[in-house]
Simulated assay, not measured.
Amino acid sequence: MIKSDHITWQTSQVSKQERQQLAGHQSAVLWFTGLSGSGKSTIANAVEKALYDQGVGSYVLDGDNMRFGLNKNLGFSAADRTENIRRIGEVAKLFVDAGTLTLTAFISPYRADRDQVRALLADREFIEVFVDTPLAVCEQRDVKQLYAKARRGEITGFTGIDAPYEVPNNPEITIDTSAQPLEVSVNQVLVYLQNHGYLGGRRDD
């Protein structure tokens, strides 16, 4: 790919801080990561609805949805997975600049890829949410039978079976959906946001 040397970043007349002030809350990325079937999208969408009910501007970038458009030319090789996350990271950064609390739901199996997205953002703008649901539970939930197909060799490079998942070292939030109902998981995220000053009020960090 040839990069042009004739491009310049266009600075807006409205700052990120001004957009946040208008919105009445901080912007950041809630990065939900975990195995397929762990509950990432379910929690992210439920958190988005809860934030909406509170008048907080948020948006979910879902792994499957992004592959319908922006990332439809990518497969599931290690290189394509890395590029998938790189693109999403850049999109999420723009959402944060727009003053939006952005929720992403991607397996994002490689620690280095997640760390690269964190490095794109300012301090406190990347909140890693590790949905730490056991593999056996994820397989039980798999209505598409993707795990079964992977175990039979019909699908290759499937995370958790014949491709690795690198567990986060120090996630801001860890959730095990096999140990608690959805509403508890959602509340866990909301409490974190409230206690750390993203929604206004006190900040515990």
Rank of each mutant, 00 (worst) to 15 (best):
M1K: 12
M1A: 14
I2S: 12
K3R: 12
H6W: 10
H6N: 13
T8C: 11
S12W: 06
Q13M: 11
S15V: 07
K16A: 09
Q17M: 10
Q21W: 09
H25E: 08
H25S: 03
V29L: 15
W31A: 01
S38T: 04
G39W: 01
A46Y: 10
K49N: 12
A50K: 12
L61H: 02
G69T: 06
N73I: 14
L74D: 04
A78E: 15
D80R: 02
R81W: 03
E83W: 06
I85P: 01
I85K: 00
R86C: 09
R87E: 05
G89K: 01
V96Y: 01
V96R: 00
L101Q: 02
L103R: 01
A105C: 11
S108D: 03
R111H: 13
A112N: 11
F126H: 03
V129N: 00
F130R: 00
P134L: 08
C138V: 04
E139V: 10
E139W: 06
Q145I: 08
L146I: 07
Y147I: 04
A150P: 02
G153Q: 07
I155H: 03
I155W: 02
T156P: 06
A163C: 08
V167R: 14
P168S: 06
N170I: 09
N170T: 13
S178W: 04
P181E: 11
V184H: 15
V186G: 02
Q188N: 12
L190N: 05
Y192R: 04
Y192T: 05
L193C: 03
Q194S: 15
H196Y: 15
G200Y: 05
